[in-house]
Computed example of a mutant assay.
Amino acid sequence: MVRAALMEKPLAKVRIVDLPEPKLETGAALLETIYSEVCGTDVHLFHGRLAGVPYPIIPGHINVGRIMQTNGPVYDVDGNLLHSGDVVTFLDVHETCHNCWYCLVAKASTRCPHRKVYGITYGVQDGILGGWSEKIYLKPGVKIVKLPEQVKPEAFIGGGCGLPTAFHAVEQAGIKLGDNVVIQGCGPVGLNAAILAQLAGALQVIVVGGPALRLNLAKDFGVDAVINIENMDAADRISAVKELTGGRGADVVIEATGVPAAIKEGMAMVRDAGTYVIVGQYTDNGEVNFNPHLDLNKKHMTLKGVWGIDLSHFYRSIQIMAKYHQRFAWERLISRHYSLADINQALDDVEYCRVIKAVIAPNGN
């Protein structure tokens, strides 16, 4: 039997259950979970804020573990044959068809209507397909990445889903050498965006957010300035950004807050003919009003939304970790490790920002 955390329905306390160990299809693998993360998406799942979730589910969409067994040869995305004991991770997105209009014509596989996600849009009836479990069933065709030696499991899970999500946002932002960049929000996505903006060549990276615990880590990661939202109102925050950017505003602003009210504020932080990228609005938290003439059109602003990740964002994020692990030490994002028995406390701590990153160790690693 396999112990797993089951989220039966929104707002119901997550409980621990015993499930039968799965029988492996040809091309499948069984993973012993080392770490799984608890992120903002899991809080949304708990509150029922995401559409199309087939409760009951086993959450945990970004994970790292050891190969226990395979049924037939199974390879990682580099074509390497995997063996028992290999430490791997895998892209949580599965069943992207690569055959529909969005995949082939729009080149936007994150909008493929067939894609499903471990820990989010697979229900427990589909199998042990979430990381809040002692073991995870890797279906045939799941994109597996063997961790480079330089990337320890704790560092990988410290980056978690925030790193590839931020990678997608920074890629869409098109940051150029010498740009002034503002990151709104200093949760895992915002902090990773601040790291990647520096690597992309930003001359100055400014992080707007709170609480101080997160802003202090942003400074440790090398950002040039932080603006604490607890110490000033929106107008003062906008003025502070303009003071730091020659009175014009930032070349690029990336929103990673999840708060709709941050959108209009962020638009005001963008310079004329600058770029605004919205990545934090993963669930429907309401509407926001802005003036399309003054806030967008007259500013000649480029406005982009970012949804999800694909294999390129996931794979290249791990490569970045391997090269820059000593400089940024992603494990510093982890505030606390939890057992499966503590999962409800972990959810609560994430929701109320008591931690930066909460990590589950289902096997007591």
Results as ranks from 00 to 15, higher is better:
Gln319Thr: 10
Ile57Cys: 10
Pro362Gln: 02
Gly127Cys: 12
Glu8Arg: 15
Leu50Ser: 07
Glu255Ser: 14
Ala5Pro: 02
Glu95Thr: 11
Thr89Ser: 13
Pro260Tyr: 02
Ala273Arg: 15
Val270Arg: 13
Val350Cys: 07
Gly159Met: 14
Val17Asn: 08
Met267Cys: 04
Ile360Asp: 10
Gly210Asn: 01
Glu171His: 13
Ser312Gln: 14
Asp348Lys: 15
Gln326Tyr: 03
Gly364Thr: 08
Val117Lys: 04
Leu333Val: 07
Pro292Arg: 06
Asp295Trp: 02
Gly190Ser: 09
Asp92Ala: 04
Glu230Leu: 13
Pro54His: 05
Val93Phe: 00
Gly308His: 01
Ile238Cys: 01
Val77Gly: 09
Gln345Gly: 07
Thr110Phe: 00
Glu287Arg: 14
Arg15Pro: 01
Val74Ile: 15
Lys107Ser: 10
Val189Leu: 13
Leu147Pro: 03
Ile195Phe: 12
Val277Asn: 08
Tyr55Asp: 09
Val270Ile: 03
Thr89Pro: 01
Lys146Pro: 09
Ile16Pro: 05
Leu213Tyr: 08
Val124Asp: 01
Leu163Glu: 07
His44Asn: 12
Val223Thr: 05
Gly65Pro: 04
Ile175Cys: 09
Asn192Pro: 05
Ile57His: 00
Gly130His: 02
Glu230Val: 01
Leu203Met: 12
Leu129Pro: 01
Leu244Ile: 14
Glu171Val: 03
Gly85Lys: 11
Gln198Ala: 09
Met321Lys: 09
Val151Tyr: 05
Gly209Leu: 02
Asp126Asn: 14
Ala169Gly: 13
Ala200Tyr: 10
Pro10Asn: 13
Ala322Asp: 12
Asn365Lys: 02
Leu11Glu: 15
Glu134His: 01
Ala358Pro: 03
Asn289Pro: 00
Asp251Glu: 14
Gln345Leu: 15
Glu351Phe: 05
Tyr55Leu: 09
Gly119Gln: 00
Val270Gln: 10
Val87Tyr: 07
Gln204Gly: 02
Ala235Trp: 05
Glu287Tyr: 14
Gly185Tyr: 03
